[in-house]
């Protein structure tokens, strides 16, 4: 089961990455080129997956959309991981009021529905990729902070850390040399799962119009466009949703598979 998850998840994720790479050198048509004489072409024939309301090639947009989605998700998770892990490690060193403060801030931030926060953020700084990255990134911070703190505390209790402390190494040096390498595996697993969530979130924000702006192709925005032409051209709604689902599924499976590999104890419980 977990081996299968690893392979299927790895395969799907590799597929998304491959799409993004291919799109950077080749797409059947330029993904932003419009052709008003070829609007709403059905799939098959000259355009594999048909054309949209501006006569753009859907297949090219899907390919290019993979790199958009991946970039935004990676950037958002990177932001969340960098800040979150720093905070988590810090909390592991200095427990007490700092810990409490971080947790209370979490409570406040998380109390508001993420969608609402993203909408308000877009209203303040304007819609765009940067808004999506920031909004998703912020919600990733506490996740990584919690994971990193938990894992770091375990490592701090290990003998070799005690030895290092006895040898007079400071907390920063210990964190960098001993803690971070030892919690990296956990972070990679969490990062993979957060990547999946980030892709889902990006699609949702772009669907609402506060994420990726045209002409940059985006799966979520393709769905939003498709919704207005549902009756005229139903095929527009199928492929973007499908690739979102497959990409998220792939990363989720990969994350689960990696976790099982890393922590065989968990396998029994699952």
């Amino acid at each position: 089961m977990s081996r299968a998850a690893l392979w299927i998840g790895g395969g799907l994720s590799a597929g998304v990455v491959a799409m993004a790479l291919v799109a950077s050198v080749w797409t059947p048509y330029p993904p932003t080129r419009m052709n008003m004489r070829a609007r709403f072409q059905p799939p098959g024939g000259e355009w594999w997956l048909g054309t949209d309301h501006f006569g753009r090639d859907i297949a090219s947009m899907i390919l290019a959309g993979a790199s958009t989605s991946l970039m935004v998700a990676l950037a958002a998770v990177a932001v969340g991981m960098l800040i979150g892990v720093s905070l988590g490690c810090l909390a592991a060193v200095r427990r007490g009021w700092l810990d409490d403060l971080v947790m209370r801030c979490n409570d406040v931030v998380f109390a508001f529905p993420a969608v609402l926060s993203a909408l308000v953020l877009a209203a303040v700084i304007g819609a765009g990729a940067h808004t999506a990255i920031l909004a998703i990134g912020v919600f990733n911070i506490p996740v990584f902070a919690r994971v990193a703190r938990g894992a770091a505390l375990q490592v701090w209790a290990r003998e070799f850390v005690t030895a290092a402390r006895a040898a007079g190494r400071g907390p920063l040096a210990i964190t960098l040399v001993h803690i971070v390498p030892n919690i990296a595996g956990v972070l990679v697993v969490q990062g993979t799962i957060q990547l999946a969530l980030a892709m889902l979130a990006e699609a949702g924000l772009s669907f609402l119009g506060v994420g990726i702006q045209p002409p940059t192709p985006s799966w979520g925005r393709m769905l939003a466009d498709a919704q207005t032409y549902l009756e005229r051209a139903p095929h527009l709604a199928l492929v973007p949703g499908l690739v979102i689902a497959l990409a998220v599924l792939g990363l989720n499976l990969l994350g689960d598979g990696l976790r099982d590999m890393l922590d065989p104890k968990l396998r029994r419980a699952r």
Binding site: L200, A203, L223, G241, I244, A245, V248, L249, N252
Partner: peptide, 8 residues
């Protein structure tokens, strides 16, 4: 089911 966006 977890991977499919609800708006889709």
């Amino acid at each position: 089911g977890v991977a499919v966006p609800n708006f889709w």
